[in-house]
């Protein structure tokens, strides 16, 4: 068993393949009692590999451990939002969309624009947790196809759902549409309690966080459209 601290939770976890070994390094931590135990058995990993032969055992371990962790996270006022999350001036901008839309492409443009002031917190599967003093995003060992994640806790500034578009435009998203998008792009369990927790957290997002709908192309102007809208800025 390895001991990690992820999203302010003590995680006892089994892994042996390359990706988890590498990705977990920055999260190692000692503790007495685990909050969450993540155990993906060899049988479960092999069964998944048989079902999806194009995924290696390494991939299966990575995906299964992430699935177990994020399932249990729902019991700790947290959930995973499928997004590429970029941090600027210690505030997290979470760009969410179905795979292949261009989340990472967009956040890479932020790194180009803001240089040292920005970094990727998690390129695909950050955790969000809800506390009395605020809502926070976390890097985790599970960051999709890339290894871009940082073991940090950052207040959430905004959640932005992306669509491809020829022109750049951004608008605030209404409550009902926000809920729909969170249900599509957030990870909830199939159980009733997990789903109820997820909906409680969705309500907090609607009430406390700026949520936007962005249509964007791949350009510097796309970055500025978002930045200026959210910060009332006038960057050109």
């Amino acid at each position: 068993m390895h001991k990690l601290r992820v999203a302010q939770l003590n995680v006892e976890i089994d892994y042996k393949y390359e990706t988890m070994t590498k990705q977990s390094e920055a999260y190692k931590c000692d503790f007495e009692k685990p909050d969450i135990v993540v155990s993906a058995s060899d049988e479960a990993i092999e069964k998944m590999h048989e079902e999806y032969p194009h995924l290696s055992l390494n991939d299966c371990e990575y995906m299964l451990t992430g699935f177990i962790f994020y399932n249990k996270l729902l019991q700790y006022d947290g959930f995973m939002l499928h997004s590429s999350t970029v941090v600027l001036n210690n505030e997290a901008y979470m760009f969410s969309a179905p795979s292949g839309t261009g989340k990472s492409t967009h956040t890479q443009l932020w790194l180009k624009e803001f240089g040292d002031k920005a970094y990727i917190l998690n390129d695909d599967k950050p955790a969000i947790r809800f506390f009395n003093d605020g809502i926070y995003a976390y890097g985790t060992p599970w960051s999709g196809k890339t290894d871009q994640n940082v073991n940090k806790k950052v207040p959430v500034k905004a959640i932005i759902f992306i669509e491809r578009s020829e022109n750049n435009h951004i608008e605030k998203m209404g409550a009902t549409e926000t809920l729909k998008m969170l249900l599509y792009q957030g990870f909830r369990s199939r159980g009733k309690t997990g789903t109820e927790n997820f909906l409680d957290m969705s309500e907090k997002i609607v009430n406390k966080i700026g949520v936007y709908k962005l249509g964007c192309n791949i350009s510097r102007e796309a970055v500025l459209t978002v930045y200026n809208e959210i910060n009332g800025g006038k960057l050109k």
């Binding site: 009902t176 729909k180 249900l183 599509y184 199939r190 009733k192 969705s202």
Partner: peptide, 27 residues
């Protein structure tokens, strides 16, 4: 299916086995 009022909207989401073939949400 679970009906809940969330932030002034009513949503129905599938729970349990149903979610396997229905990932949508009804408002």
């Amino acid at each position: 299916y679970l009906l809940r009022e969330v932030a002034g909207s009513f949503v129905v989401v599938p729970v349990g086995e149903e979610t396997l073939d229905f990932s949508g949400v009804i408002t």
